[in-house]
């Protein structure tokens, strides 16, 4: 029996919105520590990992480990019926055929209830080790989104070069080239807008911009985004959620066609 109550439906709405374009069907693995999700895109070069800890729900009850195989398209359709401020309750039996979603509007006592049919999804699960990254950049999520959007107008890929001076996003395309350079700075008034760079050694990697812009759909979830880079390992783009929950994206670097 699973029963998880979210005070604000918008969190789940946004999470699903952010990943539904990357993966179509995925298992929501529920256990007593929370609800986790791991899925790869069709080409298997990017990976989404989400964890909503039990603390994010009130209350959270999960007696047995359950995998809820859900089509994200269907989930989006149902979540569209929820308003951002609705109280959302997820329910499922121990061996469920359906997952039940209840949206309660506390203001006008409106309760809507939906069942989504579950599916059996056979996905491989990857173990992601804790990695000490060579560079960790924290910046405003909107800033990162803007950079990706702007540069994707010029090129398909962006090189992210991190030195102790700062971080440089650069691209080269048919119509020309462009770059955005960010220096480390701390904004006391608006801490979210500060740029923090934690560097152990300089790195320079190239990534697909199309994927990065896709990741940026999660920008509404968090004010800041954390980019972690190391040579020869996937880029980690992390959006922190409440109570140490997170939404992480991994993207394989482009190797061999750097310019």
């Amino acid at each position: 029996m699973l029963e998880a109550r979210l005070d604000q439906a918008q969190m789940l709405k946004k999470v699903v919105d952010a990943i539904k374009d990357l993966v179509q069907d995925c298992n929501f693995d529920c256990n007593d520590s929370g609800i986790a999700l791991q899925a790869m895109d069709n080409s298997h070069v990017a990976l989404v990992s989400m964890l909503l800890r039990s603390d994010a729900f009130s209350p959270f009850r999960c007696d047995r480990n359950i995998a809820l195989g859900i089509n994200l398209g269907s989930l989006t359709k149902v979540l569209r019926a929820a308003q951002n401020d609705d109280v959302l309750t997820l329910k499922a039996e121990d061996a469920p055929d359906v997952v039940n979603l209840v949206f309660e509007n506390s203001a006008n006592d409106r309760i809507s209830e939906y069942d989504i049919k579950l599916m059996d999804i056979d996905q491989e699960h990857l173990g992601i080790p804790e990695t000490d990254y060579a560079a960790t950049i924290t910046l405003a999520a909107t800033e990162f989104q803007r950079i990706c959007r702007d540069l994707s107008a010029l090129s398909e890929s962006v090189s992210i070069e991190c030195t102790k001076d700062g971080v440089k996003f650069a691209c080269q395309g048919d119509i020309g080239s462009g770059s955005v350079h960010l220096k480390q700075n701390s904004n006391m008034d608006k801490p979210a807008e500060s740029v923090e760079i934690d560097l152990t050694e300089p790195v320079s990697l190239t990534f697909s911009l199309k994927y990065l812009t896709n990741f940026c759909k999660a920008s509404g979830l968090s004010e800041t985004v954390k980019l972690c880079l190391s040579h020869e390992v996937p880029l980690l783009v992390e959006y922190g959620l409440v109570n140490n929950s997170y939404l992480r994206f991994y993207l394989a670097p482009k190797i061999g066609d750097e310019e």
Binding site: M40, S43, H44, V45, A46, L47, E124, L126, E156, S208, K210, Y211, P234, Y250, L251, A252, P253, K254, I255, G256, D257
Partner: peptide, 10 residues
């Protein structure tokens, strides 16, 4: 998307 040069997650 051109995924040439990108290794699989696995």
């Amino acid at each position: 998307v051109d995924t040439s040069g990108m290794k699989k997650m696995s």
